[in-house]
Structures are given as C-alpha cells and as structure tokens.
C-alpha cells in the first residue's frame, strides 16, 4: 500500500484511538439527548422571558415578539404603577448581604467548633438539620405569628432576617463541614508552635486557608436569601422584598416590564455568582495544590 498524506481529521482520530478513546458507545448519545432535554426544560422558559423582555412598546405577554427595544427596562424603573421595584431590590440586596455576613461568621465558628465532640453537639446538629427540612412557608407563618403574639412589628430586617437564617445557616454549616474536612490540624498547631496567639493563628492562617470555602458559603447565603419567597411571605411586614414584589406584579401587572424585571434580577444574580466564583478561582490559582498530607 502506498503511503498517503494524512488529513488533520484522520490524525485527530488516530490520536484519539492511541489515547485509548474508542468510538462513543450508544449510551453516550442516549444520555446526551437526555441531558440536552434537561437543559432545555431548565433554561427554555427563562430564555423566553429574557427574549420577550426585549420587545418595544407594542409588546405583550406572549409570543410573537413585537419589535426590539429596551423600552420595558426603562418602564420598569420609571413607572410607579409597576410597583416598588427599586425599593424591593434595595431591601432584598441589603437583606441578602446581612444574611451573607451572619451566615459566613456563624458557619465559620460552627465549623471550628464541630471539629471535636462537645456536650450537646448531636442536639445542635439535628436541630440545625430540622430547620433545614422544615417547610419554609410553615416556618415563615410560625415566625409571623410569634412576632404578632409578642407584639413586635415584623419587618425584613428582623423577622425575615431570622427566617432566612433558619435556611442559610444550616446550609452554610454543612458546606463548612466539607471545607473543614480538608483542613490540616497541624497548620494551626504549627502556627501556635511558631509563636502565634490564638487570634493571630485564626487571622493569619485559618481564615486565609479557608477563604475559598468561606466564599462558597457566602455565595450560598446570598443566593438562597436573595430569591427566598416562602419564608419571607409572612415575615417581611409591610414592605416587600424583591421576590414578593415580583409575585405581586404577576398578579396585577400585565406588561413585559415583568419580564424585564426577571432579566434584571437574573443578571444581578449571575454577576454576584460570577464574582464569587472568580474570587475562588483567583485564590486557588494563586495557591499551590494542597499539601501531600491532605
């Protein structure tokens, strides 16, 4: 047989074969189709909303698209009849930030505490899991009733804050457990051995080493609180958070500015998630792979 020049495709195929990657089995295609359908089901409806929010003034709530403009975004922030979007947004962001800070601090301390057994550790743990599995709406109603009974006015920064923490804190602690399992105790011991005080060993060693994990906890805390609906419904008082605002808009606003709102909040969420993941990636790139002992 004569030697023929090999095309790039053939070469790629040969390389794959040499690397031990044979033709894909039929199961690959079945699973790929399933996955594709899943992604479509997940993002399809949302995509519809993003697309429909870009209509012009003639736009309605359903396809087909009428024109292409940012009209409804402007409308969202200028028209009063659409509801208190700006206020809701501010409250939701403030609440989410507050929840984030408390969740990170609480989870970090719990992570440190749960490294060894202490009296009542089992009780604390199961109480925590309990508040994680309790139905959010019921829990919210309970908190609302309790505030009423105590004669306290419910508001987003008291009752709703507590309701959100009942959800984000156990979540954060569970994430923290996973993070702490990769923490080498001898780092702390070494810090002490080298003369660091307890505070120095926490600030100069423990916190920086755990930083990516703490960022992950922060991310969870923020996103869980930012779009929490069930636990907020009966606890936010007279002023709405953003999810409540959107919900009330679905009841009485019949313009694509509802969709514009969906698009804006999604962008805000993605920005925050992106910033957190970027931060984690940056820390980890800067950092070496973990010690051989871990």
């Amino acid at each position: 047989m004569r030697a023929r020049p090999i095309s790039p495709e053939q070469r790629a195929r040969l390389r794959r074969a040499a690397a031990g990657a044979p033709r894909r089995p039929w199961t690959f295609w079945v699973l790929a189709i399933l996955f594709g359908a899943y992604v479509l089901a997940l993002y399809g409806p949302m995509l519809c909303i993003y697309v429909l929010s870009l209509q012009d003034i003639r736009g309605g709530l359903v396809f087909p698209m009428k024109g292409l403009s940012l009209h409804w975004f402007v409308d969202l922030f200028t028209q009063v009849r659409t509801g208190d979007v700006k206020g809701g947004f501010q409250r939701s962001i403030s609440l989410a930030l507050l929840v984030t800070v408390l969740t990170v601090v609480g989870s970090f301390l719990a992570g440190l505490a749960f490294r060894q057994r202490f009296k009542g550790d089992g009780v604390v743990f199961y109480l925590m899991i309990g508040s994680l599995v309790a139905p959010g709406l019921v829990l919210g109603i309970g908190i609302g009733l309790l505030f009423q009974y105590l004669g306290l006015p419910p508001s987003w920064y008291t009752s709703a804050l507590g309701a959100h923490l009942s959800w984000t804190l156990p979540f954060g602690v569970l994430v923290m457990f996973a993070v702490m399992s990769r923490f080498d105790r001898s780092w702390e011991e070494a810090a002490r051995d080298l003369g660091a005080t307890r505070w120095q060993s926490i600030w100069l060693v423990v916190v920086p080493i755990l930083a990516p994990g703490l960022l992950a906890v922060a991310l969870f805390g923020f996103t869980l609180s930012y779009d929490e609906f069930a636990r907020t419904l009966q606890t936010s008082g007279s002023l709405n958070t953003l999810p409540l605002e959107i919900w009330s808009m679905t009841l009485n606003v019949t313009s694509p500015s509802l969709y514009a709102l969906g698009t804006v909040t999604t962008i805000a969420s993605f920005l925050i998630i992106g910033m957190c993941l970027g931060g984690i990636a940056l820390i980890q790139r800067r950092r070496a792979r973990h010690n051989p002992s871990v």
């Binding site: 011991e189 950092r287 070496a288 010690n291 051989p292």
Partner: peptide, 22 residues
C-alpha cells in the same frame, strides 16, 4: 511536623518569616 505544615497561602519567604511576623 511530619507533614511539614507549611502554610499553603504564604510564599516560602513569608512562611519562614511567619514566626517573626507574629
């Protein structure tokens, strides 16, 4: 320490200077 317990987030120089820093 057996695992050396070097602080993974500090450079070699910062690790060695750590006892003086604290």
């Amino acid at each position: 320490f057996q695992s050396y317990a070097l602080f993974p987030h500090l450079s070699v120089r910062e690790n060695v200077a750590f006892p003086l820093r604290v």
